[in-house]
Every structure is written in structure tokens, then in C-alpha cells.
């Protein structure tokens, strides 16, 4: 059977089975609708959706480079404004393009205040080029450029807090979401598009290939990240946190032991010192955002 797909993100793309970024792309287009222009930085999503001459996109789509995604989007926004047109502009980038290589242009576009939405699908490393660490890679994750071994426990630095950096630019709406909660992601895309000015959305996108789990577990892993407090879904309006997803927290081990990138923390026996450091990250998140649901005893 070869039917017509009704979505704006066509099937036949070359993402891995169970890819979270593909789920995010479908949901984002579902929320944005056909009057949208997508600017896409280099990265997994760009590569798997548009190997020339194929494209999965059914809306106008332009590939920039890693570094100038927001600059290209700024130009399109300025041109549309001059022409009096009403199309929405979404810039899409992975965490490498957003946290590291493109932050200069991203900061510039937010400071100038262009009316667009920047969406980062955060799979916590450079997956497309072979799992190198990025500024979004969490503490102790093993990647090809932060390999765990006798002298290393993996990535030595914590994850950069990019939403706060962009909120500090005076962005009217900054939010985090996860592919584990697609209707919530859709609502946040709609809200960001309806808000005037530069808005930022960071979507947690578990990567089965890079993190080392089976493709069918993508949503389950995303849920565990939230339930352990290692990822927090929140909304910030004009610099203030206005909504947070609350949870009954689980210990971080349940999230870590499901993934190959943290396997070294459990072999030959659980490394309690390192796990305690990761638990401290979750505890800090919980305290900062107030995510804990207090159960009545």
C-alpha cells in the first residue's frame, strides 16, 4: 500500500527507526501548518530529511550552515516584514548547531529581536557526525570525544543551560519540551509562534543510536529523564518560570542504566561517587524548578 500521507513531513526520510528528531519534526509541522518557512542548520534532521534531490519537507525549507542558521532566519523575517507577508519562520537546529557552533548568530538574532521561533532538538551530542560531545552533553556521558575508560568517566562538564542564556536576552517566551510528551510539545510550538519576538524551544530528543538503547524505547527513555529530574519541562515568560511539569521523582540510576553511554558507571560495580554527582544535578533541578510532588504520608 502506498497511500497519501496527510502530514507536512513526508515519509521516506532516512532517520533511524525510532528517531525522536523525526517525531519532533512531524509534531512541529503539525503545530505550525503550511504557512511556515523552515530554516534548517546542518545536523541529523537536515541530513536524514533532505539527501538531494529528495526532501521530506512539504513547506518552504532552506538549509543554512551550522553557524548561520539564525542569521538566515533573521534575513527571511526582515524580508517578509518588508513585503508585508505573514508567514511564520522557524529555525531548526540540533544541539551542536545551537549550543556550540551557531550561538553567535543565535545571540545576535535574539538581541535584535526578530519575530521568529528557534527550535533546538537536543539529542545531547553531535549524532550525525558520529557521537562527538557538545555543550549539551550531560555529565559523565561517554561519547567518541569523551570516551569512558581507565582514566576517564566520560564527559567531564555539565550541560550548558542555554534556555537561561536566551531568557537573559529578554526573549518573551522560552520553553523546554520532550518527544515523550508530544501534545505538550505541539502546544508549546503553537504558543511560541503566537508570541511576538524571538522565542526559543528546546526539545529533548533521545537518540537510540548515540545513547545506546533500542529504537522502541525512545519515548520511555524521554519519560525517565523527566521522572528522574535530569530533564525539566518548563515554560518561561519574560524571564520568569510560569509552568513546570511536576513529578514523583525516581532515582537517577533508572535512567542511566538503560543507556550504553552511561554503562561504565555500573561496571564492574555501580560507581556510587559518580552516580551521586549525577543525582546532585537532578536534586538541584528539583530545587530550582520545584518539580517535586509532595506525597501525603
Amino acid at each position: 500500500m502506498t497511500g497519501e500521507s496527510c502530514g507536512l513531513f513526508e515519509y521516506g526520510h532516512r532517520a533511524c527507526g525510532g528517531c525522536a528528531a523525526a517525531m519532533a519534526a512531524r509534531t512541529i509541522l503539525d503545530a505550525a501548518g503550511k504557512d511556515t518557512i523552515i530554516v534548517s542548520a546542518t545536523g541529523c534532521m537536515e541530513v536524514f530529511s533532505t539527501p538531494y534531490p529528495d526532501t521530506a519537507w512539504k513547506v518552504p525549507w532552506i538549509h543554512s550552515l551550522f553557524e548561520n542558521n539564525s542569521a538566515v532566519a533573521s534575513g527571511i523575517v526582515a524580508s517578509l516584514k518588508k513585503q508585508g507577508r505573514k508567514e511564520k519562520v522557524i529555525a531548526l537546529g540540533g544541539d551542536g548547531a545551537t549550543f556550540d557552533i551557531g550561538i553567535l548568530c543565535l545571540s545576535g538574532a535574539f538581541e535584535r529581536g526578530h519575530d521568529f521561533v528557534y527550535i533546538c532538538y537536543d539529542n545531547e551530542a553531535y549524532m550525525n557526525t558520529g557521537i562527538q560531545r557538545s555543550g549539551a552533553t550531560p555529565y559523565d556521558a561517554s561519547t567518541t570525544t569523551s570516551p569512558a575508560g581507565k582514566c576517564s568517566m566520560g564527559n567531564r562538564r555539565p550541560k550548558k543551560d542555554l534556555p537561561m542564556i536566551l531568557a537573559a536576552h529578554g526573549a518573551p517566551y522560552v520553553a523546554t519540551a520532550s518527544v515523550a510528551y508530544l501534545p505538550d510539545l505541539k502546544k508549546k510550538v503553537e504558543k511560541a509562534l503566537a508570541t511576538e519576538g524571538p522565542c526559543y524551544l528546546q526539545v529533548h530528543a533521545p537518540c537510540c543510536t548515540g545513547w545506546g538503547f533500542e529504537g522502541e524505547k525512545t519515548m520511555a527513555i524521554g519519560k525517565l529523564a523527566i521522572e528522574t529530574g535530569l530533564w525539566v519541562n518548563y515554560e518561561m515568560e519574560d524571564g520568569k518560570v510560569t509552568r513546570v511539569k511536576k513529578v514523583v521523582r525516581k532515582p537517577v540510576e533508572v535512567y542511566l542504566k538503560e543507556q550504553r553511554r552511561f554503562r561504565h558507571l555500573f561496571k564492574p560495580k555501580p560507581n556510587e561517587t559518580e552516580i551521586a554527582k549525577i543525582q546532585a544535578v537532578a536534586d538541584r533541578n528539583a530545587e530550582r524548578f520545584g518539580i517535586d510532588i509532595k506525597l501525603k504520608k
Binding site: 502506498t2 500521507s5 513526508e10 515519509y11 521516506g12 526520510h13 532516512r14 530529511s49 533532505t50 538531494y52 534531490p53 529528495d54 526532501t55 521530506a56 519537507w57 512539504k58 513547506v59
Partner: peptide
């Protein structure tokens, strides 16, 4: 630049 027909990825039967 280069351009492609919208949704042409569909020719790739995964």
C-alpha cells in the same frame, strides 16, 4: 542553489 520537489522523499521506500 539546489531545490527539490516537496515531499519527494516518498520515492525512498524505507
Amino acid at each position: 542553489g539546489c531545490s527539490a520537489k516537496p515531499g519527494r522523499a516518498k520515492e525512498n521506500r524505507t
